[in-house]
């Protein structure tokens, strides 16, 4: 997403705009949500930091909508446009989120089946954004991709260009749907609801985390992109190996068989590598969810 913001920023800059672009790094772990933002204007930009009143929000992964730390819904009002990279239709998202923002969908290519497509999602998002904004020509877009990705091999740059141009063309019907919102008026603004911070003694106000319950409450399984699955017909029940090498201590043993706690497994796949009879396979989360849906369908 940082790269996406830089391509969009450079494309604006190439078109003669003043620009500010920045990533906001989150937790240093796999699957942590990351966002980046771009501002562009005809004059020097004094605002900085997180955009609280966005004109356009682009979500590259629709599973982030439910992650509080991603804050996807923040600042979405009737002025904003929300573009989601998703299999699900815009109408469904509009209904699910009950948002006043205009919702558009950038249909997922075959990224779910073909993980090699994932790195190109950024380019597709930028291509779509460029067309929706209506301020960036295809030439400026391609030039920005070439500039920002100059460290990559030529075929990678080409694929990024192709994905960006495909998305650029896909959004033709919505060209120019984004309007710059006026800045907040000092005459009519929402008053901040400031509070006096109450005194609370150190038993409450020291930043201490007692591990046990917090560890249970925090569903670290949401971080996972790959899921280890035990094939019990191959498992030789040497349970000590996988359960004691799991760095997150989420493999327990029931009746001499290892059981993975998917609420807390982060998908590091150490168990997959360690298993002597190769009885633990790794499948993508998207695939796992799809097969869960199918199984549920069969049972009902």
């Amino acid at each position: 997403m940082k790269t996406a913001s830089r391509i969009l920023g450079s494309a604006f800059f190439n078109e003669g705009y003043e620009v500010q672009d920045a990533p906001r790094y989150g937790a240093e772990r796999r699957g942590a949500p990351i966002f980046a933002f771009v501002r562009a204007d005809n004059k020097a930009i004094d605002e900085r930091g997180v955009i609280t009143h966005p004109d356009l929000v682009i979500v590259a992964d629709d599973s982030l909508v439910t992650v509080p730390a991603a804050g996807v819904m923040q600042g979405l009002d009737e002025h904003a446009v929300l573009l989601i990279n998703s299999h699900v239709s815009a109408e469904t998202w509009q209904q699910r989120l009950n948002t006043k923002a205009q919702v558009l969908v950038l249909p997922i290519k075959d990224a779910m089946q073909n993980r090699a497509e994932l790195p190109y999602v950024s380019a597709a998002c930028v291509g779509a954004a460029a067309r929706l904004l209506g301020m960036i020509s295809q030439n400026a877009l391609v030039r920005a991709i070439d500039e920002e990705l100059s460290h990559l091999a030529a075929d990678k740059i080409n694929t990024n260009r192709t994905r960006a141009i495909e998305a650029f063309e896909l959004m033709t019907t919505h060209e120019n749907c984004i309007q710059q919102r006026p800045s907040v008026s000092a005459l009519d603004y929402q008053q901040p609801e400031w509070v006096e911070l109450p005194f609370e003694d150190a038993r409450i106000s020291a930043p201490t985390i007692h591990a046990s319950l917090t560890s249970v409450e925090v569903k670290t399984g949401l971080w996972r992109t790959m899921r280890p699955v035990i094939e019990y017909d191959r498992c030789n029940h040497c349970w000590w190996i996988c359960s004691s090498t799991c760095p997150h201590n989420v493999i327990s043993v029931e009746d001499n068989s290892p059981v993975i706690d998917y609420d807390h497994c982060v998908g590091c796949l150490v168990c997959v590598a360690q298993c002597p009879p190769h009885a633990i396979k790794a499948i993508s989360e998207a695939e796992a969810k799809q097969s869960a849906v199918e199984q549920a369908g069969e049972t009902t």
Binding site: D46, E47, R48, G49, S183, V184, S185, A186, L187
Partner: peptide, 17 residues
């Protein structure tokens, strides 16, 4: 520091009012 540029934007907004 750099939050002062946000104050500049606010000065512009307040002056407009």
């Amino acid at each position: 520091g750099c939050f002062a540029t946000k104050a500049k934007a606010a000065v512009d907004g307040l002056r407009a009012a």
